[in-house]
Computed example of a mutant assay.
Amino acid sequence: MTSFAHILTDDPLPHVRRITLNRPEKRNALNNLLRKEILEALQAADRDPEISIMILRGAGPCFSAGYDLSADNKQGQPYHTAGGAGQWSRHVVDGWFTIWDLAKPVIAQVHGYCLAGGSELATACDVVFVAEDAQIGYPPVRLMSPPDMQFHPWLVGMRRAMELMLTGDAMSGREAAEWGYATRAFPLAELEQATLAFAERAAKIPTDLQQLNKRSVHRAMEIMGARAAMRAGTEIQALAFTTESSLAYRNNFKRDGSSVRDQLDKRDATFGDYRTKK
């Protein structure tokens, strides 16, 4: 099996491939190499006739705290996306839709923080099992921009989406399941076994049929406009980057850990949550 720098892969059950984001010291922050390895591992499993279903999870204290803001994400992007204003948001949405378009189902196993780009990664999966105390949110709306992948109205409805977008507050895992973002929520100690039990059950269905079962749900969402709306949202995200508030905030970022932490604390301190929660 291919050797990776930032992920681990194993087959915990027959016909099940598990991919573990393995940057726990960075809270599994999504740099370009990690995104590349996630997509490569998923695509390899999608081609493997012995694999029926995949699981994505995070090592350490959380699933993923979002994109790696200490990295220069303009460099070394893992695939081409047309340039111009909004290139980054179009680029990451291109990547997340490759997960949406895989033949085989992907389960996100979410614990701890699942923030910003991490929540987009989980959204791209077909089934989302979460720990009841997980924290799922998009705090960049406070000082930077709306999401790259604007999934909120499609999964939680207009009113809940508005609440989340106007505050940047997080949903607990329990709330995420109640509101429609997640499939089910479990106590943290039960999350892994529940995920494996579902994967084992879903793997019983032949893959040639299962891919059509998956696609039927996505096609219905697309007919209602989900894919077009999320792609259109990338242009709104690009527009947000031109505002005075976003420019001022991003100009203070330096690509080192202490500066990024300081800016994230500045963003969240008045709300008293995420890293600044007492």
Rank of each mutant, 00 (worst) to 15 (best):
Y79A: 08
I51Y: 04
S89P: 10
R90N: 04
L42R: 01
F97D: 11
N73F: 05
Q77H: 11
G58K: 00
R47G: 09
D68Y: 05
E50M: 13
S70W: 08
R35G: 02
P78W: 12
A45Q: 03
G60C: 01
L42W: 01
Q75W: 07
H80F: 15
G84N: 09
I55C: 14
S64H: 08
I55R: 06
L34R: 01
S52E: 13
C62I: 00
R57Y: 13
V93I: 10
Q75H: 15
Q77M: 11
D68W: 00
L34P: 00
A59C: 10
A71C: 11
S64F: 03
P49I: 04
Q75I: 09
L33H: 05
H80A: 12
R57D: 15
K74Q: 15
C62W: 06
F63G: 02
W88F: 11
D72T: 11
A44K: 13
I55G: 03
A59V: 02
H91W: 04
F63M: 02
S89A: 14
G95Y: 02
L56G: 01
W100V: 14
A41Q: 03
L69E: 07
G60P: 00
S64W: 00
Y67A: 05
I99Y: 05
K36V: 04
A82C: 14
G76C: 06
A45W: 01
N73Y: 08
P49F: 07
W96F: 11
Q75Y: 15
D48L: 05
G84R: 10
A41M: 07
A65C: 15
V93F: 00
A45M: 04
G60S: 12
K74S: 14
H91E: 09
G86I: 00
N32C: 14
A65E: 01
I38S: 04
A71V: 10
M54R: 12
W88L: 12
R47T: 11
A41I: 03
W100Q: 06
R90Q: 14
K74L: 12
I38C: 04
E50I: 13
I51P: 03
Q75A: 15
H91D: 08
P78D: 06
D46M: 08
R90C: 08
G66D: 00
P78G: 04
D72P: 10
V92W: 03
G76L: 08
R90L: 03
S89W: 00
P49N: 12
G76K: 11
E50P: 05
S52I: 05
S89Y: 10
M54K: 07
H91R: 12
A65K: 00
W96L: 06
G58V: 00
F97Y: 14
P49Q: 15
I51F: 02
V92G: 02
R35Q: 11
L56F: 04
H80Y: 15
D72I: 09
W88T: 10
R35M: 13
W100K: 08
H91Q: 14
Q77E: 10
F97R: 00
D46Y: 04
E37Q: 08
D68M: 03
Y79K: 10
